[in-house]
């Protein structure tokens, strides 16, 4: 029986800017099981990183969690004190950031920086710390660790720095590793090395991984489950096969049609019309409605409920709800038709 390690319920995070409230995360719910890889995919501004930062509670001012629950092994993290949260970060959940160039401190050697993580989060002391650091650097596939610990970030390549970041994140054997665009800044051959490393370490240590990316290729490759986000809400979630082979939200469907396949064909890409949404003025209905080809009247007026398509697959899309209802031929189907069946 798999064990749910992290549960996010109706998470809401807003940035109170001078221009108004930006609802960066607007009611996100998901579960993460032990040893699984969860992918969060979406465009820039869809709230995928803010979701991760909310879990870690490292939001930048003026960001604030305004509602919901984040349950880690049953405990609500939002009720943790600052001190508890400090202990939690790094030891239970670690995060690696997109840009390995700016996430490391340039004036300390990498050994010093990994030592610090170990000293703060474990009981190891003295020479034991350095021994563990060298072990970690070796674990993430950097050769000659004894020499590397004395080097500074500028002496390492981008791929190496990202490995150091991963070593630091693994210092206390966290239960969950959050990787926020871990390979976006890297070249494709180095990306392959890093992804391979994350998959390997996951198998070895048995941690759960959350990968945040806009690259559907990385998602298809790495993840067991996927959350598709748009404008701060979850459009659709399910297993990798659910999302790729039976997408049930119009946004997911359009997104998959708009990316090139691995072979050249005469098929044209089908772009998503319009521009990404302004988070300051969210529409009352489905956030994707203004760009949706299948948009109905109800889509503009009411936010769709999340509907279970199967045990693992959920989507919140009126088009999909209508489809299910017409297939069933239930009288309720007529109700939706009446309310907004006519296309715009």
């Amino acid at each position: 029986m798999s064990e749910t390690i992290l549960q996010v319920k109706d998470l809401r995070t807003s940035f109170m800017t001078d221009a108004g409230e930006v609802k960066a995360v607007n009611g996100v719910s998901f579960e993460l099981e032990k040893g699984k890889v969860l992918g969060i995919v979406g465009e820039s501004g869809s709230g995928k990183s803010v979701t991760a930062y909310s879990i870690m509670q490292i939001l930048q001012f003026p960001g604030r969690i305004i509602g919901g629950e984040i349950l880690f092994k049953g405990d609500n993290l939002l009720e943790y004190s600052r001190k508890q949260m400090r202990e939690f970060r790094g030891s239970s959940v670690s995060i690696i950031f997109q840009d390995p160039m700016t996430s490391l401190n340039p004036v300390f050697s990498i050994g010093h920086q990994i030592d610090e993580a170990i000293r703060l989060h474990t009981d190891r002391r003295g020479a034991d710390i350095r021994r563990r650091t060298i072990e970690l650097i070796h674990l993430v596939g950097i050769n000659d660790p004894e020499r590397r610990v004395r080097q500074y970030p500028h002496e390492l390549s981008g791929g190496m720095r990202q490995r150091v970041m991963i070593a630091m994140a693994l210092a206390c054997e966290p239960d969950i590793l959050i990787a926020d665009e871990p390979t976006t800044a890297l070249d494709v051959t180095i990306q392959a090395q890093i992804l391979e490393l994350i998959a390997e370490l996951k198998a070895k240590i048995g941690m759960a991984v959350i990968i945040i990316t806009h690259d559907l290729g990385v998602i298809a490759d790495m993840c067991d489950e996927i959350i598709v986000m748009y404008a701060g809400s979850v459009c659709e979630r399910g297993t990798t096969d659910d999302i790729f082979y039976s997408p049930s939200h119009e946004y997911t469907r359009n997104l998959l049609q708009s990316i090139p396949k691995d072979r050249k064909t005469d098929e044209r890409l089908i772009p998503i019309a319009g521009t990404p949404i302004d988070l300051l003025n969210l529409p009352p209905g489905c956030a994707f409605a203004p760009r949706c080809k299948e948009c109905m009247k109800i889509c503009l007026e009411e936010h769709p409920e999340e509907i279970a398509i199967s045990d693992t697959h959920y989507a919140s899309c009126w088009v999909n709800i209508r489809k299910i209802l017409t297939e069933e031929g239930a009288p309720a189907g007529a109700a939706v038709e009446d309310r907004g069946g006519e296309t715009r």
Partner: peptide, 12 residues
């Protein structure tokens, strides 16, 4: 070319 992540789970 083999390092390119293919956006298709079965091929991947």
């Amino acid at each position: 070319f083999s390092a390119v992540p293919i956006p298709d789970p079965i091929t991947a």
